[in-house]
């Protein structure tokens, strides 16, 4: 019951926030926006009639009030109107780009966590030794170093100079038809962006995990466990990792939005046909229906990740779970 009410409250807050964000967006994009999208759509050779036709076609002649309701309806029914740029319903574009982004990010996230947590745990259990120092320095470097530097470097060395990896897009063109061949081709194209994302991301995870675990390993109950003669590995897993899991999971969810926006630059560098690449493209071309849709999706993802972070924290941390029951 306690968890249900907690969830319901969180959900309500998230929904209200989304509503406010949607309104802010409408205000920014349709009320104060000084750019005339139609002017960007048509060339100088177009007649005023064509211009008028486009304005009517995209509903830009309707009063603001009516446009607001159309906008709200479009967002909450996930249709998002028609893109100025591709002249297709925005949802079609999104559905073609979203899986690519999710695939890239999912893969990158899994490997980041895997490498990050394992090396962080190792570093903490060997505190002060060479391994620990290495992990801490890598963490600091990847914190200070903008991700795109490594990506530029990898693209330069492995794509442009050595030509070990293909550059740009997800598959060769035309993509191979046999499923096994397709998978091979896909992985071949994925390797470089994912590697760079993992290399840039895992250091901070390792750093974070290490610092959490170092704190835990100085606790009295760890001392007790050590005194009982329990193996160090078991102490790290059972007394350490279990305790630091809630903040880690929370961080995973809280880091999701950053991961998504961070992918914009990765996708731009490797011309990966994902949401981020498309966002830059449509922002550049003042394709506001698409940009609005992207904002909506990004906001939902943000809210969702915050919501999930709250939820898992509540679920994984017994102190909070008990507190909620009360």
């Amino acid at each position: 019951m306690g968890l249900g009410r907690y969830m319901a409250r969180r959900f309500l807050i998230a929904f209200t926030t989304l509503f406010v964000i949607v309104n802010v967006q409408f205000f920014i994009f349709q009320v104060v926006n000084p750019v005339d999208p139609v002017r960007l759509m048509i060339g100088p050779g177009f007649t005023p009639e064509t211009r008028q036709m486009l304005i009517v076609l995209y509903g830009l002649d309707k009063p603001l009030f009516e446009r607001y309701f159309i906008y709200i309806k479009n967002l909450y029914t996930f249709t998002f109107g028609i893109s100025f740029l591709s002249r297709r319903p925005v949802i079609v574009d999104i559905l073609s780009y979203l899986p690519n982004t999710l695939y890239l990010l999912g893969l990158a996230m899994i490997f980041r966590l895997l490498f990050g947590i394992i090396s962080g745990l190792t570093a903490a259990s060997k505190r002060g030794k060479r391994w620990d120092v290495t992990i801490v320095s890598i963490g600091l470097i990847s914190w200070a170093m903008p991700a795109f530097i490594l990506q530029l470097l990898f693209r330069f060395v492995f794509c442009s100079q050595l030509k070990w990896f293909p550059f740009g897009m997800m598959t060769s063109y035309p993509p191979p038809t046999a499923p096994l061949e397709y998978l091979k081709d896909l992985l071949y194209h994925t390797a470089l962006p994912v590697t760079t994302m993992v290399a840039m991301g895992f250091g901070s995870w390792a750093f974070y995990t290490r610092n959490l675990l170092v704190g835990v390993l100085t606790e009295d109950y760890v001392l007790t466990a050590r005194a009982k003669g329990i193996k160090e590995r078991i102490i790290v897993w059972k007394h350490g990792f279990r305790v630091i899991l809630p903040p880690i999971v929370t961080m995973i969810f809280l880091g999701l939005p950053g991961l998504i926006t961070g992918a914009i630059i990765t996708e731009y560098i490797f011309t990966w046909p994902g949401l981020g690449w498309w966002l830059v493209h449509s922002t550049m071309n003042a394709d506001y229906p698409s940009v609005q849709a992207m904002f909506f999706i990004y906001s939902i993802l943000m809210l969702l990740s915050n919501f999930l972070a709250d939820l898992t924290y509540g679920y994984l941390d017994p102190r909070i779970r008990v507190g909620m029951r009360r």
Binding site: T17, T261, Y298, S299
Partner: peptide, 8 residues
Amino acid sequence: LCLPIFPL
């Protein structure tokens, strides 16, 4: 904090 800052 819920706004997508960079796209914005």
